[in-house]
């Protein structure tokens, strides 16, 4: 029996789908059997990020309506063994699926997979409620920005109300240079505020755009900082003790450096 992890953020555009695709891939590369589930009914995009859009035949809606079996709806990844995608219906609305139905789907999936990663839509409405319904744990994704952290706080409160208590944070798109000059919140600032454990920091990386263009998760790119950071998160999820690199502001030296630089 595996576990269901919802990937969520509240705010849109902080990297939920990118994180789901990369972590799913990284976990499968580690030899785990993984299903990634797009819960963004009506606005699916996980298939595109993973480069599987041309192979989607059935969606979770088809499974729920009895049009096909769950196994038939799972799209097998082209590159990595034991990685599957369950796409969301593009023709339906978020209200066409009920939390109970999602819960049932997740239960069924975790019987045959080590990890079920559910990519939540943005917002706190039904789409999120559905995505979190069957989750055992949650990965909260944020960026080092006021609006994103505020929404993450809201989502953390909602998840705790749903009795999902094993929550960990991914800080995405952190610019080490800006942190150094004191112009971006550093991980400790964000952890102070949100009071949940950090599982990884993804540095800002242009490779993300390139790999999304190609439909090939960045995890495959050994030269990509972001891809490697996702790999380490996958290892941490697997219980490996891998320290998180520190990103800190320059303090006195940084300040003097900046002064002389003008």
């Amino acid at each position: 029996m595996g576990k269901v992890i919802v990937v969520t953020s509240g705010k849109g555009g902080v990297g939920k789908s990118t994180s789901t695709a990369n972590l799913g891939t990284a976990l499968a590369v580690l030899g785990k059997k993984v299903a990634v589930v797009d819960a963004d009914v009506g606005l699916r995009n996980l298939d595109v990020i993973m480069g599987l859009e041309s192979r989607v035949v059935y969606t979770s809606m088809d499974v729920l309506e009895g049009v096909c079996e769950l196994e038939q709806a799972l799209v097998k990844d082209r590159r990595t063994k034991d990685l599957y995608l369950l796409a969301a219906s593009q023709k339906n609305n978020k209200s066409d699926i009920q939390p109970e139905q999602m819960k049932k789907l997740c239960l069924e999936l975790k019987e045959t997979h080590d990890y079920v990663l559910v990519d939540s839509p943005a917002g706190i409405e039904q789409g999120f409620q559905n995505a979190a319904a069957g989750a055992d744990d949650a990965l909260v994704v944020t960026t080092p920005e006021v609006a994103a952290v505020r929404d993450a706080d809201r989502i953390i409160g909602l998840l705790q109300n749903m009795a999902i208590n094993n929550l960990v944070l991914i800080i995405n798109r952190l610019s080490p240079e800006m942190v150094k000059t004191g112009d971006m919140m550093e991980p400790t600032d964000i952890i102070d505020i949100l009071s949940i454990d950090l599982i990884g920091v993804i540095p800002e990386d242009k490779e993300i755009v390139v790999s999304t263009n190609r439909g090939m998760p960045t995890t495959y790119n050994h030269k990509s900082d972001a891809g490697q950071a996702y790999k380490r998160i996958a290892q941490r999820l697997e219980g490996e003790d891998i320290p998180i690199p520190e990103f800190k502001s320059g303090g006195f030296a940084g300040w003097v450096g900046k002064l002389f630089k003008g």
Binding site: V146, V149, D153, G182, M185, E186, F252
Partner: peptide
């Protein structure tokens, strides 16, 4: 000495502004 320099550095770093704004916002939100 460092503290003195920090005091002289009148303009607060934007990350500190972000953090204190967030703390205020969240007290209200919560």
């Amino acid at each position: 000495f460092r503290r003195l320099l920090q005091l002289l550095n009148r303009e607060q770093k934007s990350k500190s502004v972000a953090k204190s704004r967030l703390q205020l916002i969240l007290v209200q939100d919560r």
